[in-house]
Design a protein around this nucleic acid. Structure first.
Ligand SMILES: [Mn+2]
Ligand SMILES: [Mn+2]
Ligand SMILES: [Mn+2]
Ligand SMILES: [Mn+2]
Lengths: 225, 225
DNA sequence: ATTTATTTTTAGATTAGCCTAAATTTGTTA
DNA sequence: TAACAAATTTAGGCTAATCTAAAAATAAAT
């Protein structure tokens, strides 16, 4: 029940991220890639986490979070995303600058702090990248969304999130004015390179590459025409 | 020039605190008391800090911050106090709850964060305990203040700070409504136990012990009568 | 079914930060 | 000034978190 080190917390988050969605356990190599350490270090840490009953681990069988581990990981994500909202909404950072700072802030230990921050921010349900913020019980909001790549000609929607969180992509989107909340209509999809022509905010046409389409989440709107 | 560990940063702050005011170097024992480690560990750390040119150290002669070390310590205090303002002003923590959280927040590394926070808070010059917040260049605001113990009968002033930062004292002051900004007139000082009778906010008389008088900073006001 | 490649674990070391116990230096008092 | 006390440093060890190199297990390919 003692406090975890930042390192231990980061491992739990990494394992969560890797096994999100899939029921298969996280492999040593996957974790080592995620936390940027050697596979040997991962084995070491994973054994320690399993002694603390935060993960289930059997030699060469990969790792799974226990419910205790899952709870801690979810709470870390809650803190991370709330801090990101704070940085963008209150300190006017842009969405490509906040991740690294939130990586540090998420480790601050205080029972009250998160909840007060949440209240102060007005209980936001999504972070600046459109990712859902789990509530105090660890429940994630669900939103029906599709990749822009899955939209068919004539369909409309709102930009609600990104798949790729890289600075390069986020800054590129800023330049294109493809920020969260932007309104999009798919005018045409070109078979040649799978690029698309869209209408942005009912006012401007623009061509987007396949790569962009595969990394932008859209919430569909009923076509009004 | 690499990043310092939290521990190293805490030692620099401790040395700063000990040598604040006095020109005499900080002793090993004083530091060990301040950071709650053994004297042996202090010697160890102090040697490492001097290799990084953050302190001047000569065996058995005590430790002094170099200008580089002083700059880092001051910046840590700036961050600490700004975060305390944030916690009280924005998240409505009370002044006795914020120190431990600020102890953690002060170690967050980000070139921009502090300055944006400072702007967001409106460039406060004093923290919730009345301690001055150094500016970006490391300059502390100066304010003419005296202890309540130094006030003479008939003199008036405003509560502007505390010497003792303990939770017990701060909570006691809250109960007495002796918060920062409270207006005080010294009605009488009793020789028997050096307690005083004061008029609080021109509306209520109250007796305060010698101990309280020695831990409350007052900014004198010209008596208006 | 062997051989080869990949993944994972083991072994042995390193570093920061801490500890206790003992030695040394410095300061104080008889 | 000699004896005692206090402050400081040295010596030796411990733990968490990391590394590299080598061994072992599993998976893939010939
Ligand atoms: Mn993030
Ligand atoms: Mn995010
Ligand atoms: Mn404080
Ligand atoms: Mn303070």
């Amino acid at each position: 029940m003692q406090d975890l080190s930042q390192t231990e917390e980061n491992y739990l988050k990494a394992i969560f991220k890797i096994s999100e969605g899939t029921p298969t356990p996280a492999s040593t190599n996957a974790i080592s890639a995620e936390v940027s350490t050697s596979a040997a270090s991962v084995t070491d840490m994973v054994i320690r986490l399993s002694k603390k009953e935060l993960v289930d681990y059997k030699k060469r069988k990969g790792v799974r979070l226990t419910s205790k581990g899952l709870q801690i990981a979810t709470h870390l994500i809650r803190k991370h995303r709330l801090w990101e909202v704070f940085l963008v909404e209150k300190l006017s950072f842009s969405w490509d600058e906040v991740h690294d700072i939130a990586e540090q802030l998420e480790h601050i230990k205080s029972p009250d702090l998160v909840e007060r921050l949440d209240t102060y921010l007005g209980h936001p349900r999504f972070d600046p990248h459109g990712d859902p913020i789990p509530d105090a019980d660890g429940k994630f909001a669900f939103r029906k969304q599709v990749l822009l790549a899955e939209l068919t000609r004539g369909e409309q929607g709102i930009v609600v999130g990104v798949q790729d969180h890289s600075t390069a992509f986020l800054q590129y989107l800023d330049q294109l004015q493809l920020i969260l909340g932007a309104q999009i209509e798919l005018l045409e999809r070109f078979v040649y390179d799978e690029s698309v022509k869209i209408m942005l905010n009912n006012s401007r046409e623009m061509i987007l590459s396949k790569k962009v389409c595969q990394n932008l989440f859209i919430q569909k709107q009923p076509s009004l025409k």
